[in-house]
Design a protein around this nucleic acid. Structure first.
Length: 575
DNA sequence: GTAGGGTTAG
């Protein structure tokens, strides 16, 4: 924990001070005001080199122990991203003012993990200092980062007892803290009693609803805000664009963005790209990207991901090459999308190059990039390499296991599927509906009827995973393929009437063809004809069954007509 | 004080 430094001897500098005039060739006398102005300048320009130079001069003149210059130095180092140097300054300040405490707490809340901010708050109180509004703001920022809801509530009660709760900045920060900690109800309570709402309070609330995927309420608040006479800002737009559920809604927001002249703002523009890509309008997303004057890494990542996710792997790689040509370095987010694109188009060599780049840059492989690599290797048939990635990952998750299990299932390797299932359970990862879909598919491909039945029961009883229509269809496929046609039909009877039961009846018809079972075949064909009267594959399969039974085309036509009558008569009967 | 970018099936 940081401690305030003991009082040090320091020169008085009430008037003029000899300090090297950084950025200028000669050394001259600089007033305290000029030093402060220079430090502010470097804070804004984030010029660490010039800032350090000026700091050395301040130290050599023994001025770094004064609270006022120290505050400027802390802010400068914090703005330049150097937390250790900001810490050193704070430790050297003889008598830190509340403003000094705020500066260092804020630096830790923004750059650090937030824990030091909390520790600093306790030190401040232990020294008998009364926290002001700004101290609380830094503290709330740290608690938001750490998602410490109970501590956040304690700070809220302290704010209430200090009578600071009606302050709109404190109120907005409390709303933000509560939403980020997942308590939308408490955020709403703060919002409802704030005497003066401003656009930040509304934005914090809207962002909370978007984060909780309550798009309807997010739009309701967006509308209420405008009705109350408050104009949306770039923050508002970047939030609500995330809540758009269709392109019409997205285009309406886009119109408002244009009217507000915010189309070329890098964050709003990226949110627009993301919205269009999500709605399937990749060309529009690309137009939004082209409108950005200075796209940053997040913008590049959004457009690459947009193409990659919509199945345009080649375009995604093309943009990635363009980005490299412009000397923009990718990060793990870029790499995960690029690897995903490689997997979709089978560009395994490009994927390998990207992986080598990650290793060369000594970036620690995170779970998302790891999962993309597992998927790429698995899809390209390099199962051992896929497995190796999984074992080398420092943290694996459900997606890692599901990706590998799915590919083993596709290859019908029940032994490895089962091994993975045990390993994931041993690690404490609970299998989900996708895991069991792969497991049942593996059993189906391997013809392991009894294992399939066992897993079908176990998934609900032992793991609490609910059966979906896909699981039923998988069982029907498994039973049908192995000749258990009656059991397959029983399963079909228990499938809720979902469009996907079409898949089940097709599986059963295919199984009837395989096992030359005219009776079940006719029933399946009848049911399929009700679900889709022009189903081509149904006619082909039924035709095969008749052909196998040496029934000529004429008999088939007759049978087809009789099936239709039968369907109308018994369509609602349970088969 | 508030905002944008990444991974699993068929």
């Amino acid at each position: 924990m940081l401690k305030a430094a003991l009082p040090l001897n320091r020169r008085s500098f009430t008037q003029c001070t000899a300090v090297s005039d950084v950025g200028h060739e000669c050394e001259e006398l600089l007033s305290r005001e000029v030093i402060q102005n220079r430090l502010e300048e470097y804070t804004c320009s984030k010029d660490l080199k010039l800032g350090r130079h000026l700091h050395r001069s301040i130290v050599s003149n023994g001025l770094d122990t004064a609270s006022d210059l120290g505050d400027y130095l802390i802010r400068m180092f914090s703005s330049c991203g150097s937390l250790p140097e900001a810490d050193l300054i704070f430790c050297k300040i003889a008598k830190p003012s509340l403003y000094s405490w705020h500066s260092i707490m804020s630096a830790h809340a923004l750059l650090g993990d937030g824990l030091t901010t909390i520790n600093l708050f306790h030190s401040l109180e232990q020294q008998g200092l009364k926290p002001c509004k700004f101290i609380f703001l830094s503290l709330l920022t740290a608690l938001r980062k750490l998602k410490c809801l109970p501590e956040g509530r304690l700070v809220h009660s302290q704010i209430l007892s200090d009578g600071l709760d009606s302050d709109v900045v404190i109120g907005s920060t409390l709303i933000d803290m509560y939403t980020k900690c997942g308590s939308l109800d408490e955020a709403r309570k703060v919002f409802d009693v704030l005497p003066n709402l401003n656009v930040v309070s509304w934005n914090a609330m809207i962002a909370g609803f978007v984060q909780q995927q309550d798009d309807t309420t997010a739009f309701e608040f967006f509308s209420k805000m405008q009705k109350s006479g408050i104009q949306p800002t770039k923050f508002t737009f970047s939030c609500v664009l995330n809540a758009c559920i269709n392109v019409d809604q997205g285009m309406q927001i886009h119109d408002q963005v244009m009217l507000s002249m915010l189309e070329s703002d890098v964050v709003v523009g990226t949110a627009l790209m993301n919205m269009y890509a999500k709605c399937g309008c990749v060309a529009e997303a690309h137009k939004a990207f082209d409108r950005l004057i200075h796209p940053d890494l997040a913008s590049w990542n959004a457009i690459i991901a947009g193409y990659s996710q919509r199945g345009y792997g080649s375009s995604a790689l093309e943009l990635f090459r363009k980005m490299i040509k412009q000397n923009i370095e990718g990060d793990l987010i870029t790499f995960s999308s690029v690897i995903n694109a490689c997997a979709s188009i089978g560009a395994i060599e490009v994927g390998r190059l990207v992986y080598n780049e990650i290793v060369a840059k000594r970036l620690e492989l995170d779970v998302v990039v790891g999962n993309s690599l597992i998927d790429m290797y698995a899809k390209s048939g390099y199962l051992q390499e896929a497995h190796k990635i999984l074992t080398t990952l420092s943290s694996r998750d459900l997606v890692s296991w599901n990706t590998l299990i799915a590919v083993y299932a596709q290859h019908g390797n029940c032994r490895l599927v089962q091994q993975c299932l045990w390993d994931m359970i041993k690690e404490g990862t609970k299998p989900d509906e996708r895991t069991f879909l792969s497991i049942l598919a593996a059993c189906s491909h391997a013809g392991s009827v009894e294992s399939g039945r066992k897993y079908f029961v176990s998934m609900v009883e032992d793991f609490g995973v609910t059966h979906s229509a896909d699981h039923f269809n998988c069982m029907i496929d498994l039973l049908g393929r192995s000749g258990h046609l009656k059991d397959a039909k029983l399963f079909l009877g228990s499938v809720p009437e979902l469009p996907s039961s079409f898949t089940g009846w097709t599986s059963l018809l295919a199984a009837s063809d395989k096992y030359r079972n005219m009776e079940v075949g006719r029933q399946s064909f009848g049911r399929l004809s009700v679900l889709d009267p022009v189903c081509g594959s149904g006619y082909v399969l039924m035709s095969n069954i008749f052909a196998g039974a040496k029934v000529d085309q004429r008999s088939f036509e007759t049978a087809k007509a009789s099936e239709r009558c039968w369907c109308f008569e018994s369509g609602r009967e349970s088969l």
